[in-house]
Design a protein around this nucleic acid. Structure first.
Lengths: 117, 117
DNA sequence: CCGTATCCAAGCGGATACTG
DNA sequence: CAGTATCCGCTTGGATACGG
């Protein structure tokens, strides 16, 4: 159990909820993590799974996930270039969160699916 | 209950993840839901639990949560006014998500407590 | 006590063009 | 293939003042 520094203003317990959200919000992070849960993917493989993402945004989101230690980026010195992304240990630890998010979304498709009227 | 219109989601299966995130992002929604899991609260009671929220933002987030059907708002015709917020059935269904978010945040306090820079 | 109304700055994110 | 660079509109959200 980590030591608590009382010097900092202790936010109410729910702060942990917001903290986690800060890491996985951003327009595409959640779904990127979801896809990487199933295994390593190349840049364009991820891109194909997110039909609406722009190249700029995907790069951006991947950089943030990498900076925060959730994914690992491997560049192969080949031509044409190959770059693979995979979850780190920390990224893997988010699995329960991603699973919960997916489960709720699936169970409530009627709220967000462009269903037939 | 009517379907809710958010930003378009056209991703493959992981879409459900993004969809759920769209409902609970917003700077304070997650933590508001977390506190309401423990029971009904008045406006200022919620406010006291979020030391940094402004009145405008709290109202705003509560309105969105209400519009999306996660919380219920009860106004008592009293002076001074009393307004109570509680989770709806749908809000309650988010419990596993909130719990997962909180668990991860608690388990990774070292990532967000030392104020990043 | 529980809000609204207004103003405004910061930054997210889209479109597009270019590169090794 | 896997990115950068640039421009820019739009939304988010903070500060503040006022209202029932």
């Amino acid at each position: 159990m980590a030591r608590i520094r009382h010097k900092e203003l202790t936010c109410s317990p729910g702060c942990a909820v917001e903290a986690t959200l800060q890491f996985i919000d951003g327009k595409w992070k959640g779904v990127v993590l979801y896809h990487l849960l199933k295994g390593t993917l190349r840049f364009n493989e991820i891109r194909r799974r997110l039909p609406n993402v722009t190249q700029r945004m995907l790069t951006n989101q991947l950089r943030e996930l990498e900076r925060d230690g959730f994914i690992e980026r491997t560049v192969y010195a080949e031509v044409p270039p190959r770059v693979e992304y995979s979850l780190s240990e920390r990224g893997l630890s988010l699995e329960p969160v991603i699973v919960a998010l997916k489960a709720w979304g699936d169970a409530n498709k009627d709220l967000w699916l462009p269903a037939e009227e």
